[in-house]
């Protein structure tokens, strides 16, 4: 059965090329602002604790939104769920095929054409070359890029690249779909279509995890929502409640 479970997951990563040199052990955050994870220095090395003790359990049909300020750990959490980052402490358990769409250009060969990238993503999903080529029509139709699919991906606008990326992430029947804020780059017509595709996948016993700064996107597509701050859970609950709280906090933050 499709599931995604995180048990006390922490992720800390080393930062190289920082101008900070601290010999003593300290923990700090960005000047009392809710930006970034907490920075820990040990023996002259800087670490960012991007996630700290996150416990979550998602099962088939779960739709989770993630909100938080820049650097709160949203992308790190998604990558940890995908298995790209391995937890420094705790454990992540995933059952099901994972589909990912992270920031611009990741998981694509920028100088290759859209068509070639579709083939590559098919091969990555365990298809043979022939099967991957067969998937082309469906993806081309969904992303509506037409002849642009024969152009290199690095000639695409952000929104166009997002269309292709989303179409590829959802084309191979993923059980667990992990999407980063990037979805906001699409125009309204495509966003509608993308939302419909997401709901379809969840309805077919899938899991959706969506991180975004666009609160309506979270409210309309998710049941639960996780609010991250400095890599820890600030609030977890029904999407509309968490989104409302988060919005209030940003408003009062702007006023000060």
């Amino acid at each position: 059965m499709t599931h995604l479970k995180l048990q006390d997951v922490s992720v800390a990563y080393p930062v190289f090329g920082s101008s900070r040199t601290t010999e003593t052990e300290v923990t700090e955050t960005a000047a009392n602002k809710p930006i970034g994870g907490s920075i820990r220095a040990r023996g002259g090395k800087n670490f960012v604790v991007a996630l700290e003790k996150i416990t979550l359990s998602l099962s088939a049909g779960s739709r989770l939104g993630i909100v938080g300020h820049n650097g709160a750990g949203k992308s790190t959490l998604l990558r940890t769920m995908a298995g790209i980052y391995s937890p420094t402490a705790g454990s992540v358990s995933v059952e099901g095929r994972v589909g990912t769409m992270f920031s611009t250009g990741l998981g694509m060969q920028a100088n290759a054409t859209g068509r070639e990238n579709i083939t590559l993503s098919g091969l990555l999903n365990g298809l043979t070359r022939k099967q991957a080529v067969e998937k082309y029509e469906g993806i081309a139709e969904f992303c509506e890029l037409g002849s642009y699919l024969d152009f290199p991906v690095n000639t695409y606008s952000r929104g166009m690249a997002m269309r292709l990326s989303f179409a590829m992430a959802t084309a191979f029947n993923p059980d667990v779909l992990l999407l980063d804020e990037w979805l906001g780059a699409g125009d309204q017509a495509f966003r509608k279509k993308a939302e419909a595709r997401m709901q379809e996948l969840v309805a077919a016993a899938g899991i959706l995890v969506l991180a975004s700064h666009r609160l309506p996107l979270i409210r309309n597509n998710c049941d639960d929502c996780l609010w991250l701050e400095h890599g820890t859970v600030k609030m977890f609950g029904p999407a509309h409640e968490v989104v409302a709280e988060f919005r209030d906090s940003t408003k009062s933050g702007d006023a000060s």
Partner: peptide
């Protein structure tokens, strides 16, 4: 699709299975 469990303790086995899984995905 098998359940995948990631923890700090499994990192070494994961590295070994990485080498083999890479081979199987020759395409």
């Amino acid at each position: 699709i098998q359940a995948r469990v990631l923890t700090g303790e499994h990192e070494k086995q994961q590295a070994l299975s990485d080498l083999w899984k890479g081979v199987t995905q020759w395409r």
